[in-house]
Design a binder for these strands. Structure first.
Lengths: 194, 194, 194, 194
DNA sequence: CATGAATGAGTCTTCATTCAT
DNA sequence: GATGAATGAAGACTCATTCAT
């Protein structure tokens, strides 16, 4: 039931994980608790499904962004990817924050990391294609560092400045791009966009 | 009571935040619930005290590391700081993970961020002292990016490879150092240690 | 749930307010604590509901008695009202005593006084209708004195002689009636019933 | 320890019976809980002792008032006694209210009624002395009615108008006196004071 | 299939009382 | 005698989960 996931997201962001009871979620969804348990075996599975949906939406964005990136030069490509990361975090920042800060990682919820793995592979294959242009020893290590770094910076940016102006956002993207390019292609100076 | 904080840490890392009841903590500490409430007004305060103690320990390390760094050149200094970050995360990785992933940020527990603020100031004043050697526009932004990046990378490294060999660790530190130096001093090539 | 109120009354009268735990009440009612909290948000609300029900029953009696009183002369009317007060106190004397002596007056339980207010108005309007026959300066004061006096005397009578014979009861009613009439109509001598 | 009783009174009136813990009482008294239990075997005994002390103070007033009453005529005597009742209730109205409304009547606290019994005897012996002037069938019944009535009316007056002006108080005393005289001496009209 | 009343284990917290120092 | 840390039974209340209708 899509409505149940919507309700879960609503309750989660409005009340926090601890105060989000299955009864409240069901009533917000306009169904009975019983129905909730017809579709999800327990609360954890419900939250896990919501996480999965959220991640699917974000991955959609990421894939689209990476497609359009193939034709750009490295600097532009990196900037586009960072921008995509920011966009991804803006899908539902409040929900994202709840996932990051309050949802216990255990059992089925280990799946939260699915997104990271998939992102890892996407970025890794991009870097592999550009291998000649970049100076990297170990592809896996580099990918992991990039993914973690961009994710952390973006997360922190969105959390701390939820209503940043476009100017702020562009400046942020510039800085992160510079950081990444300095790592990937240390000999060229990153060219900030005009 | 120090024993209560120890017990809290034990229960927290073994059972997770949600399963850590005050009664269980008290019994692990070898005292009665009543005694627990004689020293801490409620569960939140108990966890907050543990967080504070943990942070104090980590800040101790960080301050010591920064002291020894004053005489080094930029590259060596950055590497030393990254190494300090790793050491800090090795104080009690499991506990650190619980704090990062499960403890709800509210009320007194907002104090969790005290550590971040302190670290921010420490790093910022270091960068300020070296301003001539680095190419940075905005000090605050740069500091924030560095702190977030190093924290995220270190956290992820310690979580994923809790028993990494010294070799792994050194390689990790090298990479992160390269990332940082590429950002702070884009014109020089980072010199990986021999 | 009517059963819950019955159980509350039972436990309250048998054990007293302090020993009446919600768990005990629920188990006496033959349901689980959870069910209790499905119908009443907290202990206070439960007791308040019981008080309300008790008062409703008593007010029913009082209204009926006052209706039949309209056609009687003053002396007979007063005696009928006193008798009604006694009857009201006999609805559930033990429970009434708990309400009077042990239930803390706070929050929603301020409603305990609803009954007093209603009674006040009932009596006041009766006195107003008979104003010519009685010698009273201030209607509100007189009403308040009468209501308080009759309530206190009746309460004390029922508490101290829970199983008084009809004879005792009639003699008590005579005395109280004499007291009231002496106050309302000092010039006539109260005529004790044959 | 007198200080303990004072502290009990303070805590009782400030916080109510339920929130008055022995620890708080002890700390307000400036001693340790242990000391409290050196003087009183349990909480109930402590409260009972406070009740006893309060009652002793009130009885003092009542006895003094009755002494001075011997020489007055009936009307003046009754008014003096009513006034004494009001004075008694003004000794510590807040504490009196707590006793009346919140302190559970059980065990040693049945002693609360000691005051009523003693008052009963005092009034009864006064009425007996004046038997010729009053028209009463049964002395015990009359005494009981008078004591209950005056107590209830005074209590209610003090509770509802804790800061009544002297004028209000005199008018109240007049009315109660009229009520009593109408009962004791139905043939004479009560003479309100000039 | 849907419902939602019922369940009851488990949570945090309080407080009268004890007893080693 | 005084102290006050320690005790732990008990209480109010929550919520994931079940199941008869």
């Amino acid at each position: 039931m899509e409505a149940l996931l919507d309700a879960t997201a609503r309750v989660l962001t409005r009340e926090g994980y601890d105060r989000a009871s299955t009864n409240r979620i069901a009533s917000v969804a306009g169904v009975s608790v019983g129905s909730l348990y017809q579709y999800f075996p327990n609360k954890e599975a419900l939250v896990a499904a919501l996480v999965a949906r959220h991640n699917r939406e974000i991955l959609e964005l990421a894939r689209d962004a990476l497609k359009e990136v193939a034709s750009l030069d490295l600097a532009a490509a990196v900037r586009a990817m960072v921008r995509a990361a920011v966009d991804a975090h803006l899908v539902d920042p409040a929900l994202h924050r709840i996932f990051a800060e309050q949802v216990p990682r255990m059992g089925q919820l280990a799946k939260i990391e699915d997104l990271e793995r998939e992102t890892f592979l996407l970025v890794r294959s991009y870097l592999e294609a550009r291998r000649k242009e970049i100076s990297i020893r170990d592809l896996d290590t580099a990918t992991s560092i990039l993914v973690t770094t961009v994710e952390a910076l973006t997360h922190q940016f969105v959390i701390n400045k939820p209503d940043a102006m476009d100017g702020d956002r562009d400046r942020f993207i510039d800085e992160v791009t510079r950081l990444i390019l300095g790592y990937l292609a240390p000999h060229r100076t990153a060219k900030p966009r005009k």
